[in-house]
Write a protein that binds this DNA or RNA. Structure first.
Lengths: 217, 217
DNA sequence: CAAATTTTTGACCGATTGGACAAACGTTAG
DNA sequence: CTAACGTTTGTCCAATCGGTCAAAAATTTG
């Protein structure tokens, strides 16, 4: 007999067997690899199936459509991706809070470069699949944190600037080390492009965001 | 009779008619639009041909292969893309030089967002077609400018930091406004996401790179 | 004008794509 | 054992892909 249709829902409520959970994870892991380096349109189901070590029809048994895989991936991504910003809290010293936010974001770029590239690919192509999330959930979160930062400015704890662009600049500088990793390593060369480049980046970013470039004195 | 094979070389020395020059420009303009939003693999010759207002075989008369279009596009891009960095000069006040470099890069993100996204797409996917250029020409240029910046640091004109990561951070923050434009506009909302966002970004970045976030005291 | 050349097009090709489907296989409960 | 259910696969399909080709149309040249 054929498998039940229930399995393939992809987005609906799950009642999954052990094998289904395992295989779905396997597929998502493989799809993350493929999608993050080739983009959605540039990736094929065959590629993902091969990376997951199964046949194409077998993969399509767990995810009915290519889009379902991508969608599931993006949903998971956004939660973990915004976690560092959610943690930015009003308690504690503002400069310390910002510094550790930068550090956490840089660590995510180092530890989850594929997730970063998957996200970058989506945004680059106009965010066709997550536009509502950007204008909704993301904007709400950023506005909320911008208000926190504004409070710090009013209290004289940090310099007065635009909180939104401040957040953008933190995103940009940290994700750069994931999204443009190839370029970073090529420019730094074999000596400085090794594992130490993230420590160097952390040191530099801390100095940039705290003190800027003006010489002391 | 059929057209001559000479026309399609794409990379070789050109001896082109007026029509050939015009049509090639038309195609490259259309291809920039398509490639920058869909990536190389995600774009089709049909899409480019339609955007250029001609039939697919007609397009293939001017560029024999899809790759030839992309290659021509990338070659042109790199020259204009690195122009601002080349202009970074040892004459003049260091802080002013850096500030105007940032401004020029931000203007490029504003005026040539498609070029920026084309480049980002290529790097994101591992830079398969321009890797030699990154490790060669680009690295040489950056190393050269890093030396200039180091000189400024030794002279006490700017704070001591890592020149390479400084350049990375300028690239990241400015190109962010082209590559992640959709996200920027979504987060800023209808009010602040309008044309003024680049002015706001310019003001913010100037302050960030010069003074950092520490409150004045 | 007419001949030569350049440009454009419609028809076509093999390969690859996302996906469907039934049959086969594996597993487990009674 | 067997029936029921979950899993896997080979085969197939229509659509789309990059690209070819010969002939028609347009343009340039003498």
């Amino acid at each position: 007999m054929r498998g039940l249709a229930k399995v393939n829902t992809g987005t609906e409520a799950p009642r999954r067997t052990r094998i289904q959970q395992e295989k779905r994870e396997l597929i998502l892991e493989a799809a993350l690899e493929v999608f993050s380096t080739n983009g959605f349109r540039g990736s094929t189901i065959d590629q993902i199936a091969e990376a997951a070590g199964m046949s194409k029809p077998n993969l399509l048994y767990y995810f009915r459509r290519k889009e379902d895989i991508h969608e599931t991936l993006m949903q998971r991504l956004l939660d973990t991706w915004l976690a560092p910003l959610r943690e930015l809290d009003d308690i504690g010293d503002p400069l310390t809070e910002l510094r550790s936010y930068i550090r956490r974001k840089l660590e995510m770029a180092r530890d989850f470069p594929r997730e970063s590239r998957l996200f970058a690919n989506e945004i680059l192509q106009g965010a066709p699949r997550i536009m509502p999330l950007l204008a909704g959930e993301l904007k709400t979160l950023v506005d909320e944190k911008a208000a926190v930062i504004k409070g710090w400015m009013r209290a004289g704890k940090i310099a007065r600037t635009d909180p939104w662009h401040l957040i953008f600049s933190i995103w940009a500088t940290t994700q750069h080390y994931a999204d443009f990793d190839v370029q970073v390593r090529a420019v730094l060369g074999p000596n400085r492009g090794g594992d130490g480049r993230f420590e160097d980046a952390a040191r530099f970013l801390e100095q940039l965001f705290l003190d800027g470039l003006k010489p002391k004195g």
